[in-house]
Design a protein around this nucleic acid. Structure first.
Lengths: 132, 132
DNA sequence: TTCTTGGTTGACCTTTACGTAAAGGGTAAC
DNA sequence: GTTACCCTTTACGTAAAGGTCAACCAAGAA
């Protein structure tokens, strides 16, 4: 049970974001660190949430999307209807992520084709420059 | 050799975007349809560019990113240095897309875990509602 | 001729995700 | 005490990607 805590600048440096960003996420109710006086103090579980947030951003989730997913995770899944809603929301996200993977694969193929053609072109026209 | 052409509304309806969006892409130099008087008239190759643009957006490219890639594709790859720059730019994009795929896979796993837990929870607490 | 339909430009509006001061509190070192 | 550092809040600024609205043109239908 690691009881480590983090200051705002520790956390922001670790993940390459600014303190402003962390405060913004708090405004948007994505994280809720404890306070020590005025100062924010982040727990390991706050840190875990942050990791989720940042990965969410990298896959193109909006702040609202991320809040939704975090709420799914930590929210009281008590009520039946709420559960059902959450499950279908998840499934929708899953579908769109799978579409996104397809898009990425297609883009990757086009990009690597482009690289190939250009590499060949270079090899033909400027053979003196060894690309390898 | 399909010499079809498209009006702005045809194209926007086909892809579920507004004419405004197409005009905006033109302002941003992503497409350059011919004109018939004032009216824009899009060729099949304009349409192909549009497909690229929209897929680019879905994988999180910005307008600037997309312009860059389109220029790589259609730009004169003549000069040597330019080629080299283009190739490394492509490779950078490829790397980041691969990272993005990893992120997506991780997110997918967490989401499907979440769905699983909730489904089990539902089955235990509300067995009368058949989820299958 | 007037009306509708579909196109045009231009101008301003909106949302998202922060950046960037401005002004100040708390404590530790000098 | 004051300097330095890290933290705070409040608040306005900004870039991206369009939305929205007004005013206009042109061609065909009624």
């Amino acid at each position: 049970m690691t009881k480590r805590t983090y200051s705002i600048s520790e956390l922001s440096e670790e993940f390459g974001i600014t303190p402003r960003t962390l405060r913004y996420y708090e405004d948007e109710a994505l994280i809720a660190p404890k306070r020590e006086g005025q100062a924010r103090i982040y727990s390991t579980s706050d840190r875990a949430r942050l990791i989720w947030i940042l990965r969410g951003k990298r896959v193109g989730f909006s702040i609202t999307d991320i809040r939704e997913v975090l709420n799914m995770h930590y929210g009281e899944g008590g009520k039946e209807e709420q559960c059902r809603v959450t499950i279908t929301a998840c499934n929708n996200r899953i579908k769109s992520l799978e579409q996104q993977k397809k898009d990425i694969d297609e883009t990757l193929e086009e990009l690597s084709n482009l690289v190939d053609t250009m590499t060949i072109f270079m090899a033909e026209n400027y053979p003196e420059d060894n690309i390898l």
